[in-house]
Design a protein around this nucleic acid. Sequence first.
DNA 1: TTTTGTGAACTAGTTCACAGCT
DNA 2: AGCTGTGAACTAGTTCACAAAA
Lengths: 256, 256
Amino acid sequence: MKKTNKVEPASRETGEAVSELTLNRLSVYLRHLSALDATGVRTISSSAFAEQFHLNAAQIRKDLACFGEFGVRGVGYYVKVLRDHLRHILGLDRGAKVAIMGAGNLGLALADYPGFADDGFEIAALFDTVREKIGRRSRGGIPIYDVRDFKRIVQREQIGIAVIAVPGAVAPQVVQLVVAAGIKAILNFSPGALKVPPRVKLKSVDLTVSLESLSFYLVHNADNRAPAARARRDQPPPKAPASVAVATRRPGPREH
Amino acid sequence: MKKTNKVEPASRETGEAVSELTLNRLSVYLRHLSALDATGVRTISSSAFAEQFHLNAAQIRKDLACFGEFGVRGVGYYVKVLRDHLRHILGLDRGAKVAIMGAGNLGLALADYPGFADDGFEIAALFDTVREKIGRRSRGGIPIYDVRDFKRIVQREQIGIAVIAVPGAVAPQVVQLVVAAGIKAILNFSPGALKVPPRVKLKSVDLTVSLESLSFYLVHNADNRAPAARARRDQPPPKAPASVAVATRRPGPREH
DNA sequence: TTTTGTGAACTAGTTCACAGCT
DNA sequence: AGCTGTGAACTAGTTCACAAAA
């Protein structure tokens, strides 16, 4: 690489935190940069970039500023350079290994999800308790191990991230086991709250919650009525035509 | 039901919006209330409730206040009553029907995901373009249709929500088709930005973004290295844990 | 001239603290 | 006494607007 500008990560030494929101946007930026690079774009300004996923240009500059000065005044950002920086910042150049707990429908689907490999993650193993599944492989070839071997395999394979794709009822125990094996980062797909010790980062994707907020939107935007439907409304609206109006605030990467 | 308190939805008439964050928490509250009810708890105070998923009590009261006054001073909230209100607010008492676009690994997994049915959603159909899949069913029995029949079936089945579980490359077209059929709420699992007209609510779950923020955490909490490690704790120090410190801000339902 | 990087202003979201009901 | 509902205070996050670099 060139003699890039100060790679000095502004917040590195300081215990200064980077917000989850910024982090999520960084991932989005990265994906978009890869796309831009693929189409041969060499350089992009924060405003052109912002426009793509309607977002404010200052936001992007601020987000990047957490980690250094990657831009060139009067020019913008070099696509390749910024992409590589982001990859490094997010740790994607380390080829982190991932274990998936639960070789059910969801676990198997995640194991073979191409997006993960594309972004530098390696799904190293699936774990389950069901005897029939153990020893087999996902369609994509990820081996299924006995949960009892979890710790051993985590060590052998240097697995750093665990994905929880087990039924909600057993999730707490599985998390305990995962934490006991020394895993520090967990992506959880089971519903409900999970407790983890403070040094462990838990990120949850709650499928039901996502659907429910859509359901709310449907109800509270009266013209929701099924494309075909005959009158479904119980109460003839006492007032107000379309009622509540779900917040349409920042349509940024946070939610979309 | 009893003669419940003012069901007057505080924000109903006004075009006042309810934030996405509040909405997500409402779903979480609902799940917890169901659990409480199952264990025979009749009434709960906002502070006891807040404690469960470490959250501030005022937050809960504020969230609920968007829709009316459901509590009883000096007592708290009646579990069943509040649960029913939340179900109604979220529109779960309407048994919304859902279509899943894409009968691949992910689509099939989602179709049979038990959490959806538990919460009152009915997965009515899967759609795909692959001839071999059309006419078959998911393991759980959800029929797979030809995408070309989408509009017809949406109308016949009164489907209100579509889930996008197709490869990223075709997602934009699929979304277009879904929107054209009159669908007003979309849950998207494909990566990348999608454009929808303003009246359509799009909510995206980006699996890669989630993993990447964990990856970041792993890198920026230096002691991440090898789970095998003996002498895990580098610093026993009372303060400053380790470099950057990914923001651990509100550990509320927003992220976990 | 163009576009970054950033303090200052603003907006959204959370927590405090207390009046008022039961 | 106990707990809700809510204005006021606070904190986090976003946008503005401009000085300084290329």
